[in-house]
Every structure is written in structure tokens, then in C-alpha cells.
Simulated assay, not measured.
Amino acid sequence: MSRASFQNLRNPPSQKLNKRVCIRLRQDMPVGASGVDQVYTQPRERWARIQPVGTATYTESAQTDTAITHRIWLRKIEGVTDAHEIVHITSGSLYRVQRLADLDGGNDFTIVEVEQLK
């Protein structure tokens, strides 16, 4: 998984972390002869900021087959990979993690670039 760098973005003020999200690990488990069932483990709830990306970012990501539709700001979090999903608890929106990076190289915030699935 790629770890991007966001040198030109700034830490958001605390009041901007106004969405409650659940970060969960998705695992596909075989069922029967040819079925697959999703199992979700390691749920972690956090406050986050969810922001759609601009059209230039979306177009650039679509050309590399990693459709980035939103950026999600979280307080520093470890262990999140592209096997995780993020659910916006209030709206039920579902996002697939594409890549993440520390904001401005610091230890305070992580930005996760995601693709909206629902």
C-alpha cells in the first residue's frame, strides 16, 4: 500500500473533526463451494473530518486505477491498511481505504484517502 505525503496540508482545528466513524478490518471468508462472506473485526470508533477531493485529484487518481473520492482526517492512528473500511456512522456511507499518510510529517494527524463505495 502506498503512503503518500501531504506536506502542504495543515492540521485541522478540533471542531472540524465532527463526524463519527468506525474503522474496521474486512476479511472475506469462504462459504460453501463458491461463496464468500464478509467478516468485520477490530472496530475502532474515532472522530474524523470527511472532505470530498477536488476534480483534479479525482481525475489523477482515476488514471492510476485508484479512485480517490474523499480524504478523511483522523487523530494519529496506527495499523490501518488497504484491507480496512471506514463507515460514517450517522449517514452509513462506506469508504474503502486506498492509502494514508501522516499530515505534514507530524505525529498528530493521519489523512486517509478513500474511495466511496456507498
Rank of each mutant, 00 (worst) to 15 (best):
W73L: 01
E85P: 02
I89T: 10
T57V: 08
N107R: 06
A67T: 15
V80Y: 04
S91V: 09
Q98L: 13
V80R: 00
T69P: 01
N107I: 09
H70V: 09
S61D: 04
T81H: 07
D108W: 11
R99H: 12
E60P: 00
I77P: 03
R99Q: 14
I68C: 05
Y95E: 04
E60L: 11
A67Q: 14
K76L: 05
A83C: 11
G54H: 07
D104M: 07
R96E: 11
D104C: 08
G92P: 11
A62Y: 09
W73Q: 01
E78R: 13
A101R: 01
G105L: 02
Q63H: 13
V87Y: 03
T66E: 10
W73P: 02
S61E: 03
D82F: 14
E85L: 08
V53A: 04
E78T: 15
Y58R: 11
G106H: 06
S91Q: 11
H88E: 08
V80C: 04
T57H: 06
Y58P: 01
V80K: 00
H84A: 02
T64M: 11
R96F: 11
T69Y: 07
V80I: 07
D104N: 08
G79W: 04
D108A: 10
D102E: 06
G79M: 02
L94N: 05
L94I: 12
D102T: 02
V87R: 01
L103Y: 04
G106Y: 05
